[in-house]
Nucleic acid binder design. Sequence first.
DNA 1: TTATTAAGTGGAACCGGTTCCTCTTTAGTA
DNA 2: TACTAAAGAGGAACCGGTTCCACTTAATAA
Lengths: 329, 329
Amino acid sequence: MVTLNDIAKMANVSKSTVSRYLNNGAVSQKTREKLDKIVQETGYQPNLFAQSLKAEKTNMIGVIIPRFNSPSTNQVMDGIDTVAHEEGIQLMIMNSNLDIERTKKNIKSLQRQRVEAIILFATAIDNELTEQLKSSKIPILLVGQELKNSPFITYQDYAAGQLIAQHAIDNGHRKLLFVGVTEEDYAVGVLRKKGFYDIAKENGATVRFIETEFSRKISYEKALEFLPEIEETYIAAATDHIAVGIFNASMELGIKIPDDISLSGFGGYSVTQNVFPHITTVSYPFKKLGKTAILEVQKLINNKIKNEDITHKLSVELTIQGSTRRLTK
Amino acid sequence: MVTLNDIAKMANVSKSTVSRYLNNGAVSQKTREKLDKIVQETGYQPNLFAQSLKAEKTNMIGVIIPRFNSPSTNQVMDGIDTVAHEEGIQLMIMNSNLDIERTKKNIKSLQRQRVEAIILFATAIDNELTEQLKSSKIPILLVGQELKNSPFITYQDYAAGQLIAQHAIDNGHRKLLFVGVTEEDYAVGVLRKKGFYDIAKENGATVRFIETEFSRKISYEKALEFLPEIEETYIAAATDHIAVGIFNASMELGIKIPDDISLSGFGGYSVTQNVFPHITTVSYPFKKLGKTAILEVQKLINNKIKNEDITHKLSVELTIQGSTRRLTK
DNA sequence: TTATTAAGTGGAACCGGTTCCTCTTTAGTA
DNA sequence: TACTAAAGAGGAACCGGTTCCACTTAATAA
């Protein structure tokens, strides 16, 4: 690989002249032309490591994603990337694969790479990870989950749960089934459920809970079990993928949606548009979250704002589609 | 940020001793204990840039993806990441956003970062990019497209087109519509179409072509236009997303699939499972492609294999589902 | 013509590590 | 006890850039 030193020797000038040529530009016409030619011919590219080492600045932001094939994450990434590209920031993307130990390793690895901040899509959070977040010298912004004393940006998951419950109530449903996930995931497993439950109870509805997993396939299999004996008239699935799994199972069992049962999800993934009827859901501002995250993280980097001041909860919106209907006694 | 030098001063030893402590280990028990404590307390992490600069090795592979929200790309990424994680390779992921100029910049940027190889998901390829690929000092492996004299890994797109056409023919269809994309995309726009066309012609079928875009929404709108006047009995969409767009439009127009028209896609995305009936498609081995790509690229890095020897075309498989049916006169 | 200033250039130090070489100290062997 | 070998530690060079400083040369003003 050709280096700045090589260029200098070829041109019979000093390193500093070449460096100046590449940057500021206090270089004579003659020297400039000579260097133009050599750089062109050799295809010289400055070593970013050497530059960053000296500059003590990398202009990189690390992003830890939970997995590659999550549609919501990818939309958030789209938002992050849009801003990063505009601002000339380099992203260092790592995959935790939903593994908390791998998440911890990723954080260390990003610190070694001297990224200026980390945007972390966390799912589960344990004590060790909390400790790692607190003691980090570089800002770590949590996304999609909230954590006390840490900067975070998430969605109004509690309100989302309320919205769906209110929708069910408004349509006359009083026997409700909530198909959720583990409480280890605070946003999805706890908040959505709690918002839903609170509104349901206020209105005197009964709520039954079933726990499943995020996977559409597993939810589908689970639904094949519980659907035949269902007594409720409304199913609130904790995510759109779970909703689609349940939808598929009901198609298979000959249960008509929304005639026999109303069904809704959370998220607003495009998949809710691909089934017929489309699935009622709560639309989440994924891309906006991504944009907000990277803008806020820049404030943290520049010390313009304190950690504790970043606690955004982005608002969500009910999207009523054909999978839910008014209960006609 | 605490450096090796800081540690050395705190411990009253030289840099080299600290370095040895961190690596080989020819260090006395006493010194070791002293350093253990200091490193622990300071949370010291070696600067990866400084290490790489000296080592002249980064252990990084660059990946240029076309966009973040492409399901097929994400599955390939999953494959790449799986192997990368096993082998302790760091991925540097960049997004070209389907922009050829941005692709070129990404390549330069990765070269400056001294990645050891690049895996490039290219869509369109122009002369300048071809030139950039040829003159690159580090290996660049093309994925999903083929290019003469460059290493590439792709799918058997021509065979995929043949498979679908044969399926249509076997089911008695003789009036076929192929809904494709621009020929700038060689794999999707040319090969699939050509494979389809060749088999159709061999069997005396008529083929009409319509060009659309990759987007489901645009395909949906286009389908709203052409579906009402359609005379063909079989529609082959060039991707599953396009197929879903057409499917949505036909639902809207009251056209029954497969009763009125048979419809198929290419890809094998999960979305084909979410509509009813499921959509017949050709399943592509996305994850396998990713794994193969990173394994092959390592061979290139180690000079174990020449550029020209990497020309894999992974085999594909017909997945017959409910959206296509035998034509009963 | 002489003094002043600006432009152009080279030398050296530095960023944070690794590694080779040399020197000292300690342990082991005869 | 004297000699040799191995272990432990420090110094310095190096990786590939950037930047400060000092010096030379040419251009401008007095």
